[in-house]
Amino acid sequence: MNKKVVCFGELLLRLSPALNRQWIHDASMPVFVGGAELNVATALARWKVLVEYSTALPDNYLTREICEHLEQQHISTRPVHFSGERIGTYYLPQGTDLKNGGVIYDRAYSSFGMLRPGMIDWDEVLKDARWFHFSAISPALTEQVAAVCREGAAAAAAKGITVSIDLNHRARLWQYGKKPDTIMPSLVEYCDVVMGNIWAANALLGIPVDPEIHLHGSQEDFLAHASRTALALHKQYPKVKTVANTFRFDQGDGGILYYASLDTGGQQYHSTRLVASTIVDKVGSGDCFMAGLIYGLYHGHNPQEVIETAAAAAFGKLMEKGDATRQDMETIKKRISAHG
């Protein structure tokens, strides 16, 4: 029986300077190994799911050390494609998130960004796979990388492998002259599971969104809107069986309100409201949610358990520093019980 989850995307080095010139004075800047799909793979590996990571990296000593590190985390690097000359990086000041203006991308001409259709042997990458996951970050890089993503999703779908996508929208990445809603639909048509939020579905797929809902929306309003978004996705993309939407709102001075919904089988399920007065790091929370979603669906859990697990995992990631979660599943289940 096919059991592996294959996560495909760009491995990135996140350089995280302490501002007010502190990084200059210290002559030091923390470096985190990450990337959306790798964060998903890391969480799944911690939760004892067989996972492989597919990316493109240059053949040098940094790559070898990274691959050794991933293997130690129980992430198979068997499908890594060695090509090109550089690893993509981005700078993110400490205490901010990727949606802030503080992010600086340095990904041009990276090994992953130089991928072209036909370079990856998808039969080999997808060998013994049960699930193929990618995100909207990759197609944002170049039209050629978008074509590679389409190639991979189509190959997985043709083999009967479950295909999932995270509709993470990074407006700063879409710089090659194509609007997201002209690229993404031809990728989502191969997907069984779609995760995102009502605003990303609008920006990436043209699904209607109420532009003023944030001014007056209650939780009930947001959840109703999520159902409308999910219905539109189901109608536009018949292969899509499951749609998850997340809602994360800043509260007070550094606090957060978090909840999520899951639409599947003609019904909606939503998580418990999760509230914290302070958080540690916003980076990777959505990736942790995606991992929780895959984990629950992979194990055949009931929809309510799936959405509670995904939301609790994402909420817990907000309390951790770094790109990928270090939570085990027992910790996540305790959080679900504690929040009722």
Results as ranks from 00 to 15, higher is better:
44 L>I: 07
38 L>W: 06
49 V>E: 00
42 T>Y: 14
42 T>D: 13
59 D>G: 14
33 V>T: 13
46 R>F: 07
39 N>M: 07
52 E>P: 08
49 V>C: 10
43 A>I: 00
47 W>A: 04
46 R>C: 10
31 V>S: 05
37 E>Q: 02
42 T>K: 11
44 L>Y: 07
58 P>T: 13
35 G>T: 08
49 V>L: 13
34 G>D: 11
42 T>C: 15
44 L>R: 00
53 Y>T: 00
57 L>G: 04
45 A>K: 09
56 A>L: 03
40 V>L: 12
30 P>R: 12
53 Y>R: 09
58 P>I: 13
30 P>Q: 00
53 Y>C: 01
58 P>A: 13
37 E>K: 01
37 E>G: 05
41 A>N: 10
41 A>Q: 06
44 L>N: 08
41 A>G: 11
39 N>T: 03
52 E>L: 02
45 A>C: 08
37 E>D: 11
47 W>T: 05
39 N>P: 10
38 L>G: 09
48 K>P: 02
59 D>H: 15
55 T>P: 06
50 L>D: 15
59 D>Q: 15
35 G>K: 06
56 A>I: 00
30 P>V: 02
47 W>C: 03
43 A>C: 09
31 V>R: 07
40 V>G: 06
30 P>M: 10
40 V>I: 11
41 A>H: 08
56 A>N: 01
33 V>E: 01
37 E>M: 08
44 L>M: 03
31 V>Q: 11
58 P>C: 13
30 P>A: 02
41 A>R: 00
58 P>R: 05
35 G>Q: 03
44 L>G: 10
48 K>I: 03
30 P>C: 01
39 N>G: 07
42 T>Q: 14
51 V>F: 12
52 E>R: 15
54 S>G: 12
40 V>F: 04
43 A>W: 10
52 E>Y: 04
36 A>L: 11
54 S>P: 11
41 A>M: 08
34 G>E: 10
40 V>R: 09
49 V>G: 08
45 A>T: 02
39 N>S: 14
55 T>V: 09
41 A>K: 09
49 V>D: 03
47 W>I: 02
50 L>Y: 05
30 P>D: 03
54 S>L: 10
47 W>K: 13
36 A>M: 12
42 T>M: 15
32 F>T: 05
32 F>S: 02
39 N>W: 03
42 T>A: 14
34 G>A: 05
35 G>H: 03
41 A>P: 04
47 W>P: 01
51 V>C: 13
59 D>A: 15
52 E>K: 14
58 P>D: 06
44 L>Q: 01
44 L>D: 12
58 P>F: 04
32 F>A: 01
57 L>A: 06
33 V>Q: 01
46 R>H: 13
49 V>H: 03
45 A>F: 03
55 T>E: 01
33 V>S: 00
50 L>G: 12
57 L>I: 03
31 V>P: 12
34 G>V: 02
54 S>V: 04
31 V>F: 10
54 S>Q: 10
51 V>R: 12
32 F>N: 14
43 A>P: 06
48 K>T: 07
46 R>I: 05
55 T>H: 08
49 V>R: 09
45 A>G: 04
